[in-house]
Design a binder for these strands. Structure first.
Length: 896
RNA sequence: GGGCGAUUAGCUCAGUUGGUCUAGAGCGCUACCCUUACAAGGUAGAUGUCGUAGGUUCGACUCCUACAUCGCCCACCA
């Protein structure tokens, strides 16, 4: 009944344990107001996503926090859910359609959305299932999805409020455009990557001279990385201070290929140092050019379609792909003798974060959120440390971004997402396409902004209404997550209780996407911060330091690892190699740490339970019955409780795993368990074994939930049925026992000395050894005498004598443990020369350190300035080493 | 162009306010051991001028400055 299976087999326990928790309803937070609330908000994984190592790390950390707080008696809530990932999901479903030879436009918006929902129902919960297999203790009953009705209401409400406050507007700007996804992207969604491209030097002939006759006079040379955009050039700009071009004032140049006449304009923003100092101006395709164009009243010529293909404005190049066009234009220019040369040029090029296509800066009409006013408060709360980042260095990164924040492009030209809640009256507007309206805020003629479609146009009463075709950026719903998931905009018990949430755990990549925006939304709509602590963990990378990603094929799939070594081993391993905020370099062998540790724990528990007589648990441990080893292990355990709790409190999770690993393996198993074999029958020993085991399981439970629960279930007469809801151990002074710790250290020293001699003299384990212990103090004598049996058991020797001033027997070897001299008679086995050499080496070793200490103590400044206790310690150290040297020298002399 | 991180044993990494550090762990390595919880184990052992050069200090792996190498993030240099 109480027995654990001989082999630790995570596969056979993990699934069952999780089902039991669900059956017992242990994961559900019902909102008990008598307890301290503790709420963690999951970074909602992408609904198309599958679990990767980053998720594994992220969710393990969150689960640790939640389980730990739950055990501490908090009312904990871990809100799970997924976001609808507009672009990514739409891409997935479009690919499915493509298999049937269809495009989304073939089936229409409504039918397409039906397909997406179908897809979501079928595959959207993959990642949720995977989180369960990791043991995550989320409240699954509260699982949310950004497209749920409640969350959609929050989105509408927020859009309306921002619009009313004139923080949302629609206008014509250069945005990042993905020609593959055919949508606008926000600045954050364009990932800049360094690309080795080309810088092309092109001659633009000066109009006054119709033929190129003189070098350097008949034309101006511009440099560009994107020659295809020249089709949309409207000017050439130079710096007014640049004397090279002073003669061009008032001149026009001819745009090659298009043969359009361009003005030469003078603008401070042109850098004379770059390229030739002359800039071709293409306002429709470059943000800098757009600004210059605005300043100088230039027209904008858009030469590309949404798909990145040259349009009618591109003359002969119409219909050509943008990159093909680049080559073709260079060829034509070469023929015209207007192409000078190209040189290699490394520059950062934006790529779509969903499909990695090179983004095209494109002039288009989009919806934006004004960020500066929102950022103001969000900067303040972080500066005032109402929200704290762990590690702290991210504060600076956050503030830097916030202080330079730019308006957020929130409209997307896709179908899957929250439709923009804006309707246009086609009768009132003079545009054929509703997209073309400029909207600065409430009061725009023919524009209605509201929760649902209006009956009629508020301006003219007409019924010719059309909703804005665009949807909102997915992050426009994610940024509301901390309160939209708790019921807002409706009033709710949960919102009152759990907002602000306690901690947010996330990766560095989404500080700007998500964390910063949640802070702004929280402050704007709840008038309160969304969370107090932000813990930023490292990025999971492979051995070579590159980010793990599917496309690179360097992923280690957490699900494979769970299958091989179990979820507990995965969790323990990943936590133990992650120091605060540092990136994680992962390779498969790292999981041995957790696997071996779980195995060790399993076997130790098996030993304890095997030797347990249930009846002894009817009574408590009595202090007067405790042996030295009992007191020692209880004191050491107490230390461990303190360390683990402190580590969790300061988000230093690997410190917790290190403390537990060291205690369980090297103290509990290596020493206490072995010593306990002397008295497995004794009630007190059994009680201590169980007490410490239970304590370890509790401390370990947040990190390794399954194995600890499984073992817990086999322990008889426990206070709580489930370890998941058991009490978190508390460290207390009364368990501290410095005396026992120091006494035990002496015993361990003696035992190690004997073992050392055995190994050094190559004496087999079966040969019985003898030892004589010469002591200098009563205390030592008592300790050794009362615990003689430990030495005999652990070092496999007979202790012949323990007393003061024992003379070293002939044919023996000696060791020193503090003030205790250990003599080990070896008979003829002793090789005098070998022993001499051994001892001499030890003396040399010690003397080396001794010299350092002596030097320190001779230094007057040190004696004057160092604190007293430090000086005292140095003196003690010196004394100790001197004693050791003297002793070893005596020993050396005793050798004949 | 700005900002940040890393540099410690053969490998992968810990090391919290400068002195209990004679710098640790895991893996690997060496020797012995299938000792009745565990060979995914046990016992014992070897291995480091803590990237380089200065500085602050009685004292630096720890703080400061420069440099080197690697990596990350941000940025409209065409």
């Amino acid at each position: 009944m109480n027995e654990l299976s001989t082999k630790y087999d995570p596969q056979s326990i993990e699934e069952n344990i999780y089902q039991s928790w669900l059956a017992e309803n242990l994961l559900h937070a019902d909102g008990n107001a008598a307890r301290t609330p503790y709420c963690v908000v999951i970074p909602p994984p992408n609904v198309t996503g599958v679990l990767h190592m980053g998720h594994a790390l992220n969710n393990t950390i969150q689960d640790i926090l939640v389980r730990w707080k739950r055990m501490q008696g908090c009312e904990t809530l871990w809100m799970p859910g997924t976001d609808h990932a507009g672009i990514a999901t739409q891409n997935v479903v479009e690919r499915e359609l493509a298999k049937e030879g269809l495009k989304r436009t073939d089936i229409g918006r409504e039918e397409f959305l039906k397909r997406v929902w179908q897809w979501k129902e079928e595959y959207g919960s993959t990642i949720i299932q995977q989180l369960k297999s990791m043991g995550c203790s989320c409240d699954w009953e509260r699982t949310r999805f950004t497209m749920d009705e409640g969350l959609s209401n929050a989105v509408k409400e927020v859009f309306l409020r921002l619009y009313e406050d004139r923080l949302i507007y629609k206008g014509n700007y250069i945005i990042n455009w993905c020609p593959r996804c055919c949508t606008a992207l926000s600045d954050e969604e364009a990932e800049h990557r360094d690309i080795e491209g080309m810088l092309y030097y092109i001659k633009y002939p000066i109009k006054a001279r119709d033929k190129i006759e003189k070098e350097n006079e008949d034309y101006i040379v511009v440099a560009t990385t994107r020659p295809e955009t020249m089709l949309g050039d409207v000017a050439v700009a130079v710096n007014p201070k640049d004397e090279r071009y002073a003669h061009l004032r008032g001149q026009n140049v001819i745009l090659p290929v298009m043969k359009r006449e361009l003005k030469v304009i003078f603008d401070e923003d042109v850098d004379p140092e770059f390229g030739t100092g002359a800039l071709k101006v293409t306002p429709a395709h470059d943000p800098v050019d757009f600004e210059i164009g605005k300043k100088h009243g230039l027209e904008s010529i858009n030469v590309m379609t949404a798909e990145g293909v040259i349009n009618a404005e591109g003359g002969n190049y119409e219909g050509m792909d943008r990159f093909e066009c680049r080559q073709a234009i260079i060829e034509e220019l070469t023929q015209l003798k207007l192409f000078i040369r190209s040189e290699k040029h490394v520059h950062a090029v934006g790529h779509c974060y969903r499909c990695h296509t090179v983004v095209e800066p494109r002039l288009s009409k989009q919806w934006f959120v004004k960020m500066k006013p929102l950022a103001k408060e969000a900067i303040k709360v972080v500066e005032e440390e109402k929200i704290k980042f762990y590690p702290q260095r991210w504060t600076k990164v956050y503030l830097n971004w916030m202080n330079n924040i730019r308006d957020w492009c929130i409209s997307r030209q896709i179908w899957w997402g929250h439709r923009i809640p804006v309707w246009y009256c086609k009768d009132c507007l003079e545009y054929a396409d509703v997209r073309d309206v400029d909207i600065t805020g409430p009061g725009t003629k023919g524009v209605y902004v509201g929760e649902a479609s209006p009956e009629k146009c508020p301006t003219c009463g007409g019924k010719n209404l059309e909703q804005d075709p665009d949807v909102l950026d997915t992050w426009f719903s994610s940024w509301l997550w901390p309160f939209s998931t708790l019921g807002w905009p409706s009033k709710s018990k949960e919102l009152d209780m759990f907002y602000p949430t306690a901690a947010l755990v996330t990766a560095q990549e989404i500080i700007f996407f998500w964390v910063a925006r949640m802070i702004m939304a929280g402050l704007k709509f709840q008038k309160a911060i969304p969370f107090r602590d932000v813990y930023i963990h490292g990025t999971v990378r492979d051995e070579t330091g590159t980010k793990m990603s599917k496309s690179l094929g360097n992923v280690i799939d957490p699900i494979d690892i769970i299958r091989e070594v179990g979820s507990d081993a995965l969790r323990f391993s990943v936590i133990s190699i992650t120091s605060q905020g540092q990136d994680v370099f992962l390779s498969k062998d790292k999981f041995d740490i957790g696997r071996n540790f779980a195995n060790k724990l399993w076997n130790a528990s098996r030993f304890v339970l095997m030797n347990l007589d249930e009846k002894v648990l009817n009574e408590d441990i009595r202090a007067e019955d405790l042996s030295l080893a009992d007191k020692w292990i209880l004191s050491q355990f107490n230390d461990t409780v303190r360390k683990v709790t402190e580590s969790f409190e300061s988000y230093r999770f690997n410190d917790a795993t290190a403390a537990l690993y060291d205690f369980i393996w090297h103290k509990y198993c290596d020493w206490y368990l072995e010593i306990s074999k002397l008295s497995t029958d004794a009630a007190t020993t059994q009680r201590v074994l169980i007490k410490v085991l239970k304590g370890c399981l509790s401390l370990l439970h947040p990190i390794m939930p399954f194995i600890t629960e499984e073992i817990w279930q086999k322990i008889p007469k426990k206070s709580c049925k489930w370890i998941m809801t058991a009490e978190w151990p508390e460290a207390s002074k009364e368990h501290e026992n410095a005396e026992a710790v120091s006494a035990m250290e002496k015993l361990i020293g003696v035992i190690t000395a004997v073992r050392n001699a055995r190994a050094f003299w190559n004496i087999g384990i079966k040969v019985r050894m003898e030892a004589l212990l010469s002591v200098a103090s009563e205390d030592d004598e008592n300790i050794l005498k009362t615990n003689k049996k430990y030495i005999e058991q652990m070092a496999r020797c007979d202790v012949r004598d323990i007393s003061k001033n024992i003379k070293r027997p002939g044919q023996s070897v000696a060791a020193l443990v503090g003030e205790i001299k250990v003599f080990i008679p070896l008979g003829n086995a002793v090789d005098v020369n070998k022993e001499k050499k051994r001892i001499s080496e030890k003396i040399d070793d010690i003397q080396k350190y001794l010299k350092g200490i002596e030097k320190k103590l001779e230094n007057k400044s040190f004696l004057d300035k160092a604190p007293e206790d430090v000086v005292m310690k140095e003196k003690e150290k010196k004394q100790k080493f001197e004693d050791q040297v003297r002793n070893f020298e005596d020993n050396l002399a005793a050798l004949k």
